[in-house]
């Protein structure tokens, strides 16, 4: 579904990613792991159009979408959940979801909203509450809800576990599995919680110093402590 070829990018004059090749297969969960500052989030942001690609190509559903606007990507079924449980914290839960479904016609928005309430019943109870007052877990649910309301085909997630307790990390990972399994959404997830993400993903890439250091099945490295240490040091 998503194919990234020889991608190079960075910030200002500083190059962060070098010659990145990766794929996210349709209907699967693909993870990107790696040490802090290795360029994982940068890869995700450049795929989504938040930062510009210097070289290489991003293909989605066999179309070149390199440096396409985020609005065009959202309309084409790509959703992005940024790092840090980010929600519109001065707006209510319902307003956050309304912004998520901004381009939907009124009728289909209501249908999609009902699906979100079904998936996250906690959010419906708090729909009129200011989202800044939600707990970390609830914010992450809202962030997911905001992305899912457009019924995306590809979900890009940047460290959804950041700042969450271990119990909530498992909870969110289970939701990701559910979204992938029940709704058939292809997921590309960047994560630091290696053990947890390896449990749910079908394919894993490791980025180290801006380059792909590993690509393969998660089962192969899951119990290989030496390999994992090598990828992270």
């Amino acid at each position: 579904m998503l194919k990234v070829e020889r991608l190079e990018t960075g910030y200002g004059k500083k190059q962060v990613l070098f010659d990145i090749d990766l794929e996210a297969a349709e209907g699967k969960i693909t993870a990107i792991i790696g040490p802090n500052g290795s360029g994982k989030s940068t890869a995700l942001k450049s795929i989504f159009g938040l930062i510009s690609v210097w070289k290489g190509a991003v293909n989605y559903k066999n179309k070149d979408i390199t440096n396409r606007s985020t609005q065009a990507n959202v309309k084409d079924g790509i959703a992005f959940v940024p790092q840090g449980n980010r929600v519109f914290d001065e707006m209510t839960v319902l307003e956050n979801l309304e912004i998520g479904g901004f381009h939907l016609p009124k009728k289909s928005f209501q249908t999609e909203l009902n699906k979100i309430w079904e998936l996250f019943p906690e959010l419906e109870k708090r729909k009129k509450q200011n989202s800044g007052k939600l707990s970390g877990g609830e914010k992450q649910m809202l962030a997911l809800g905001r992305a899912l309301i457009n019924s995306p085909r590809l979900l890009l997630m940047d460290e959804p576990s950041l700042g969450l307790s271990p119990k909530l990390v498992t909870f969110i990972m289970n939701y990701i599995r559910k979204i992938n399994h029940e709704f058939g959404v292809t997921v590309l997830i960047v994560e630091q919680k290696v053990r947890e993400v390896l449990e749910v993903c079908h394919h894993v890439y490791s980025i180290k110093l801006g380059k792909i250091a590993y690509s393969g099945k998660p089962e192969i490295i899951k119990d290989d402590k030496d390999k994992l240490r090598e990828l992270f040091l």
Partner: peptide, 23 residues
């Protein structure tokens, strides 16, 4: 209004508004 919500969303978090597909 929808337009008003978009203005408030950009005011609250411009990057998140971009991510949500707001122009």
């Amino acid at each position: 209004t929808k337009m008003g919500r978009a203005i408030r969303a950009v005011a609250n978090d411009a990057e998140l508004a971009d991510i949500s597909g707001i122009n």
